[in-house]
């Protein structure tokens, strides 16, 4: 059972209740509950294969068979197709980056562009190049010729072009050099300062600790613990149970 979760927002931006997902016959998520409040950064933490990516995909409408209640800004989105969910202001940044390799940096950003959204920061390529200076120098370059870190930044920038109010960020630190990881953490904090809400999946608890207000710990397709990020970092026992390899 999920222990009573302190500090859960009463009117959350995103509410997930009893989310279940199957891949073929494999029952991967057996009932995920979590919330993200307005302006909050929540970390979704769990071991390899715990179901973090699956959870984010299912929220985004990318899982083939899903069940459960997902509401975003008060609207049920559990049965909408991905593009409709994206147009409501949910931005998804996948773990495997998936930039459009044949398209230039500018074109990748163009794909993500959506009209300005009231209540969300408005992004333009120029503002994004200020946030990620590395990208500015390679606007005409194709995705095939970018490093992993550059690709990760482009993926994030491309999603921001949709002016989301909530960002689903899947393992942004995976496979990146420490210095780039620090830049990513900075970027996430800047986004929060701009008023964005973020649900970030991580195995790397130190990255999560650097950015998140709250955490939900996922194991075997369910949230087993949720609470303040600081409490999680202080609670050796919980981390040993759910996170130690």
């Amino acid at each position: 059972m999920t222990p009573p979760a302190p500090h859960t927002p009463s009117d959350p931006l995103l509410r997930v209740e009893g989310l279940q997902v199957w891949y073929g016959h494999a029952h991967i998520l057996t009932g995920v509950d979590l919330t993200v409040g307005r302006g909050e950064v929540v970390a979704l933490i769990g071991r390899n294969g715990a179901g973090k990516t699956t959870t984010l995909k299912a929220i985004m409408g990318l899982a083939e068979s899903r069940r459960g209640n997902v509401t975003f800004d008060g609207r049920p989105i559990g049965t909408l197709p991905p593009h409709a969910i994206a147009r409501l202001g949910l931005g998804y940044v996948p773990e495997d980056r998936r930039i459009f390799a044949d398209l230039t940096v500018d074109e990748n950003l163009e794909v993500g562009r959506q009209p300005p959204r009231p209540g969300a920061p408005h992004w333009t390529p120029d503002r994004l190049f200020a946030l990620f200076p590395n990208l500015a120098a390679m606007r005409g370059r194709r995705g095939t010729r970018m490093s992993g870190g550059e690709q990760q930044m482009l993926t994030l920038a491309r999603t921001l072009m949709g002016n989301p109010t909530l960002l689903l960020l899947d393992e942004p630190s995976e496979g990146l050099a420490p210095i780039i990881v620090r830049q990513m953490a900075d970027a996430v904090r800047r986004l929060k300062a701009e008023g964005l809400s973020v649900l970030v999946s991580e195995q790397n608890t130190s990255f999560a600790a650097a950015v998140a207000d709250r955490a939900s710990v996922l194991e075997k397709g369910q949230v087993r613990w949720s609470g303040r990020m600081a409490d999680l970092m202080a609670d050796e026992a919980v981390r040993r149970t759910y996170l130690a390899v």
Binding site: G61, P81, P82, R98, F100, V111, Q114, G162
Partner: peptide
């Protein structure tokens, strides 16, 4: 190139 990714971006 990537139908699912494009749709996740609102296309």
């Amino acid at each position: 190139q990537d139908r699912d990714m494009a749709s996740a971006l609102g296309v």
